[in-house]
Computed example of a mutant assay.
Amino acid sequence: MTGYVRKRGKKWCYCFDIGDINGKRKRIERIGGNTKRECEISLRNALNEYDTGYIEPNKTSINDYLSDWLENHIKVNRKINTYNRYQSILKNNILPIIGTINIKDLKPIHIDNMLSIAKKNNLSNTTLQHIYAVLNSALNKAVKLRLLNNNPCEYIERPKRDNFNPNVLSVDEFYNLLKLLNIEKYNDYIFSIALHMVLELGLRRGELSGIEWCNINFDESTISIKNNLIYSHGKTYLTTPKTNDSERVLYISKDLCKLLKEHKKIQLLNKLKYGSHYIKNFYNDQQFDFIMTWEKGNNLHPMYFSNKFSKLMKASSIDKKVRFHDLRHTNATLLLSQGVDFKTIQIRLGHSDINTTLNIYSHVNLEMQKKAVNKLTTLFNGDKLATNIKNTY
């Protein structure tokens, strides 16, 4: 493929023929620069783009491209809650601002202005990062599809997340919450089991909801985390855990084993009590034998844990804003305070990247460093060493 340059007015243009498209000859002509030399360089770059597979978008809007990307890439390859979250971000934060722009005309300034508008609407830095991440992912795909030569997001500084210091419960505060439950009532009884499991295992609420009896090995004292019951956009779905590393096998204590064995007996008695009226749980046309069920057998909704815990906190004298999910953080914080290493905690929490664990619990990490320095000081008899130095000078 060859082309030529020519001067048109004060500018230089390049032109080349790309052959037949839909039965018609197609020729590309663009402004290439202010000088012949600049235009020749632009021509070479343009020819190289077409030779390596670059396809001109030809009036494809951001709205059309992102809608297609969401339906034919994200919906097919990602979990339903991810699809719903991306859909919400596109609808509320991206498409209203840049949706009408042709994808070939999208510039870094458009993205920068979009993020500035979101910031003026008092959205958090974490939300700004989510907006950036969704658009960046979509445009990276456009580059791979050769709809774009490069990703304009590369020229925009990625928004930084807000610092996150999770609120956690002390052991005494946890037991104070348990005392507020009347385990003679089934709804309090089943919730007390949920609290014990999350505090010991650091489970997400969806993982807790999705555990089946076949996932427990009482001989080995382990629980396999293989399911995730999620609630998104008014519907409940049973899917796999958040990431590949979230599928994990956790060792459980003898006390928790004993608690679960007793619960299994109670659940079996309930099955006998209700007989044919005992509710069976089906997801994806498959029956599941969940641990977390109501007395009549229907599984506990993942939102129940959050709502019940919120009411329990309000009924307590604990002056903290602690969510049900923060019991997961409480689990990790308590393990760290007892000297458990970050790698073990990463595995138990199901984080795919240890940096996630390190970043979330950086405040605890600092306390651990202080203890380490104090131990090192004691080891080297630091006070005596400092005295010797002072006497020397």
Results as ranks from 00 to 15, higher is better:
3 G>F: 03
3 G>E: 06
6 R>P: 02
6 R>Q: 08
8 R>E: 14
10 K>C: 05
12 W>R: 03
12 W>C: 06
21 I>S: 11
28 I>K: 08
30 R>F: 10
31 I>E: 11
32 G>A: 07
37 R>P: 01
38 E>G: 08
42 S>M: 06
45 N>L: 14
48 N>K: 09
52 T>V: 12
58 N>S: 07
60 T>G: 01
65 Y>T: 00
69 W>Q: 04
69 W>E: 02
69 W>S: 06
74 I>C: 11
78 R>A: 12
83 Y>K: 11
96 P>I: 07
97 I>Y: 00
105 D>W: 09
110 H>I: 09
112 D>W: 03
112 D>T: 13
115 L>I: 14
126 T>E: 03
129 Q>K: 14
136 N>P: 02
140 N>L: 11
141 K>L: 12
146 R>Y: 13
149 N>T: 12
152 P>T: 05
160 K>E: 13
168 V>W: 05
177 L>G: 14
177 L>M: 13
178 L>D: 09
181 L>R: 11
182 N>D: 15
183 I>C: 13
184 E>C: 08
186 Y>P: 13
188 D>Y: 12
189 Y>C: 10
196 H>Q: 14
199 L>E: 12
200 E>T: 05
201 L>C: 15
204 R>W: 01
207 E>G: 08
211 I>D: 06
214 C>A: 11
217 N>R: 01
220 E>T: 09
223 I>S: 02
223 I>Q: 01
224 S>W: 00
225 I>V: 10
225 I>Y: 04
229 L>R: 09
231 Y>H: 15
232 S>Q: 05
233 H>N: 15
237 Y>N: 02
238 L>K: 05
238 L>M: 02
242 K>Y: 02
248 R>G: 05
252 I>T: 00
254 K>F: 03
257 C>H: 02
258 K>F: 10
268 L>E: 09
268 L>Q: 12
272 L>T: 05
273 K>C: 04
274 Y>F: 15
276 S>R: 12
280 K>N: 15
282 F>K: 10
283 Y>K: 01
284 N>P: 03
285 D>L: 07
286 Q>P: 02
287 Q>A: 13
288 F>A: 00
288 F>G: 00
292 M>I: 02
298 N>R: 06
300 L>M: 08
301 H>P: 01
302 P>L: 07
308 K>F: 14
311 K>N: 11
313 M>D: 03
314 K>H: 08
315 A>Y: 09
316 S>C: 08
318 I>F: 09
320 K>E: 05
337 S>R: 08
338 Q>A: 03
338 Q>V: 00
344 T>K: 03
348 R>P: 05
355 N>L: 11
361 Y>M: 06
362 S>F: 06
368 M>N: 10
377 T>K: 14
379 L>D: 06
381 N>T: 07
386 A>V: 13
386 A>L: 14
